[in-house]
Simulated scan of single mutants.
Amino acid sequence: MMTEAVPEPSEAARKAELSENLARVEERIGSACVAAGRKREDVTLVVVTKTYPAGDVRLLAELGVRHVAENRDQDAAPKAAACADLPLTWHFVGQLQTNKARSVAGYADFVHSVDRVRLVSALSAAALRAERELGCLIQVAFDAESGSVAARGGSAPDGVAALAEAVADAQGLRLDGVMTVAPLEGPLAGRPGEAFERLVEISTSLRAAHPAATMVSAGMSADLEEAVRAGATHVRVGSAVLGDRPRLG
């Protein structure tokens, strides 16, 4: 016996669902800020809309969301184009191939996943071509061996300073800070709070040479409280806001 497909929720129902989810996430961030002795305005919520349609982005914008993120250019480029009329800041947070740099430079305001000099060069050329300035964050991989790149991308901690200098010296790019994803391997696996604390330490060292590089992007749906406690300025939240829905085709 064939089962009937579950119908998509109406726009009003979806907006109500997103509103409730946003309220819960806002409560979590607010409580984490109180516990950490921080001001709520010091933490920016970036909603990761990967696999969700442009219609959801429009609803989020109606609900007051101003920062959205994507991790695949093939999904992000058409979505950003469809939402170009909205007052949104776009963050690219996934691993980025150099051949996608030109496309990403056309819509992204921040690239959180800068992890190698070759990518710096590609983004610089693309930003100049697009006559835009891209904010760049160095992705730090705490599960990377010295001089290698982790499975999910990122520079080993001891490579951050040199990579930051490359970004700072590149035309069309602006060094804005650092980012990490809680490691799945290595000594900090399963200990996101410690990883985020180390990221903040790296950020502090980086700001000695680059005072404007103040962004610390860390924490997702499962560990945003630990990121706020450690000192993250931006948390990247997807499923806690958007829920579990089928992936886009």
Results as ranks from 00 to 15, higher is better:
V25I: 10
S217E: 09
Y52F: 15
V235L: 11
K50Q: 07
P7K: 11
E145N: 09
L63D: 04
E194D: 06
A122Q: 09
D56M: 12
W90Q: 09
L60G: 09
R58Y: 04
V149G: 00
A240G: 07
D115V: 01
L18N: 11
E225A: 14
V120K: 11
A213M: 03
A212G: 11
H234G: 01
A156T: 01
A189M: 12
T98C: 10
A213V: 00
A82P: 08
C136T: 02
A77K: 10
K79S: 11
S155L: 10
V235F: 13
H67Y: 12
R191L: 05
R40W: 11
E226K: 14
A80D: 06
L134Y: 06
R191P: 00
D56R: 07
V114T: 06
K100S: 08
L86M: 09
K50I: 00
H91K: 07
A125I: 00
H112E: 15
Y107T: 02
E194A: 05
V111M: 04
D56C: 10
S103Y: 01
A13S: 14
R174Q: 12
V167G: 10
K50F: 06
G193S: 01
A122P: 09
E4M: 12
S148P: 00
A161Q: 13
N21T: 06
H210A: 02
D109M: 03
S146H: 08
G55A: 03
V43H: 11
V235G: 12
D244P: 00
D109P: 05
G219P: 06
F110E: 06
G172T: 02
V114K: 06
L163Y: 11
P192K: 11
A105H: 07
V93S: 05
S103N: 06
A108Q: 02
V237I: 15
V181Y: 05
A77E: 11
T180H: 04
V43C: 12
E197F: 00
V167Q: 11
T3H: 13
E131N: 13
W90H: 09
T89F: 08
Y107I: 01
R132A: 02
R66T: 15
A54N: 04
L184R: 14
V47M: 08
M2Q: 13
R102H: 12
V235T: 10
E201S: 13
P187H: 08
G190T: 07
V25E: 14
T51W: 13
E17I: 00
Q97T: 02
G159I: 02
V181A: 05
Q74L: 03
L199R: 12
E4R: 15
F92I: 00
R40M: 08
T180P: 02
E145Y: 04
F196K: 03
G219A: 06
L224A: 08
L224C: 10
R247E: 08
T49F: 09
D85C: 05
S31V: 09
A130Q: 14
S121Q: 15
M220R: 04
A144I: 00
V117W: 00
A168N: 12
P187V: 01
L175S: 07
H234R: 11
T180Y: 02
R198S: 05
A5R: 13
G37N: 10
P87R: 10
V228I: 15
Y52G: 00
E185A: 12
